[in-house]
Design a protein around this nucleic acid. Structure first.
Lengths: 302, 302
DNA sequence: GTGAAAGCGCTAACAG
DNA sequence: CTGTTAGCGCTTTCAC
């Protein structure tokens, strides 16, 4: 009989339904501590915007932040699992630990949304984030705008040891694939440079001799920009990722030329919106939601 | 007393409020006929997406479409004004007629949202759309990526007579202002070409002799691309506006290099969302919401 | 003006 | 398992 009613174009009244249900939905938000990491700070900003928007609509957020190490992750994870929540948003920074965490969440039968990076698994979940490979291809294209004479490109990998996600490797893979697929770009030559994080002092002028462009496959383009500015090296095109304050500053100065923006705020905002849709509105959401790849130059910043 | 209650952190329960209010909000949507104009079709797509989203939340849309002439606009306008609506979304294609229409709407005391173009007026309303001048500046920047030897740029104005909005003039103004502000770009030389709409046959090969780049300040970049392709002219960079199917096609082929995207779907979607916020949620909305200027190349299309 | 009461459409609990 | 009912928090109406 219910079936018959539904067939006949019946629409649940969301207001009445949620009024009667009279329940707050608790979304657990399980992310790295954001105090010092601007990228995560922006994710949180989007989440907080969504929190405010859905506050009157029966949504409560419970935050759990961990330090950027796997022990802290595991400790907080068990804390999360002890609590009660109707939906979970988290970032699988540490792969193996995240798989275990996912399995526990599955037992709770709640909707799961992952941001920033995805995990290959059969456990149903939604991914909201970047397509890292494609963003690398795009970086290649942007570098390729230079003239058609010989071009030397420096790929600068500045990474901390605990970098366990493969995001920046995927970006580099995409980057090279662009030049492989475009055979008329054989005049581009590449050199790689690997530097430990906060090892800015390891840069030296010789590294940039004869270089026309620099590709920084993570958010640390500002370090290269700082160095080039301090040493009065001009005419080198820099392309990097993420709208950190320092990156934006050098973009405005014209020292960084391109930033690829992954919209962390929108990631967080969208993720909460997806939980809201599933739980409050009882509507389906996509399995994967890639952020559009935005090209930011000085003139379309903001 | 009400005041005291509110001071004390009282939040209206949106579910109960709207259930008791038990009213459908009618939004009048007053736009050009979209059948043949892809740009407006995309606006409508966004509006329909919003319609679906808010259908269960007490929102009903009433559509009014006019032909692309001011008589049709006026006729439909009076039809709209005779109807009952709680909020209005419209595009001020014809300036003077739109001002009159606005004044009538004001009398109805309903929230007003304008898309696509704005009107200078003291009548309270929200504008959702592009910053045309800024988008022209951006176009200038994109053209300027070429090498630092002499560059000849052709500005191709393909417009129908009834083009009454000044959007494309603002874009051109922004475009030139970029080169004026950057004195190191004096090697860029400009030529203008004005062609009546669907006068593609008026293009000829000589126009492109010695030209390195073409700027088309509206959505008709594909016409130039078609011509260049048909005449096997290569090596000219084209930059235009809007993700029309034809433009996208030539972007994929590598004949158009850049498209600046004004997100018409998002405009429509946002506009409905603003009416929803004001009427259903009784929350404030901004006076002006500029769309971000998106740079689209082959590699970040879709 | 203030106060009481009906009822919006649904869910959950309880009775049969 | 099906049918009935209280009540979610608010708006509107009607009585005072």
């Amino acid at each position: 009989m219910n079936a018959i009613i539904k067939e006949h174009g019946y629409k649940r009244n969301v207001f009445a339904s949620n009024l009667a249900f009279n329940k707050k939905f608790v979304f657990a938000v399980f992310l790295p501590k954001y105090d010092t990491i601007e990228y995560w700070h922006n994710q949180i900003k989007g989440i907080e915007k969504a929190e405010q928007e859905y506050r009157n609509l029966g949504v409560v957020l419970d935050y759990y932040f961990y330090d950027f190490d796997s022990t802290s992750f595991k400790n907080k994870a068990s804390e999360v699992l002890k609590s009660n929540f109707d939906g979970i948003l988290f970032a699988p920074i540490f792969h193996d630990e995240s798989v275990l965490f996912l399995e526990e969440c599955q037992k709770k039968q709640v909707p799961i949304v992952m941001v920033d990076a995805n995990i290959e698994t059969s456990i149903a979940h939604t991914y909201v984030g970047q397509d890292a490979f494609k963003s690398g291809v795009l970086a290649g294209k942007l570098i390729s705008f230079a003239v058609k004479s010989e071009r030397r490109v420096l790929v600068v990998k500045i990474a901390r040891e605990i970098e366990t996600t493969s995001v920046y490797l995927q970006r580099i893979a995409g980057f090279y694939s662009f030049f492989e697929k475009n055979k008329n770009l054989e005049h581009f030559k590449f050199t790689e440079l690997t530097i430990k994080d906060s090892g800015k002092e390891l840069l030296n002028v010789n590294m940039f001799a004869g270089i026309h462009s620099v590709f920084v496959p993570n958010s640390r383009a500002y370090m290269v920009a700082q160095f080039l500015e301090a040493n009065h090296i001009v005419g080198i095109r820099i392309i990097g990722y993420d709208l950190l304050e320092l990156n934006k500053e050098y973009l405005k100065k014209g020292i960084i030329d391109f930033l690829i923006h992954q919209k962390p705020e929108i990631q967080g905002y969208t993720a909460i919106g997806f939980l809201y849709k599933q739980l409050v509105l009882q509507e389906p959401v996509p399995q994967t939601q890639y952020m559009p790849l935005e090209i930011i130059v000085k003139e379309n910043l903001e």
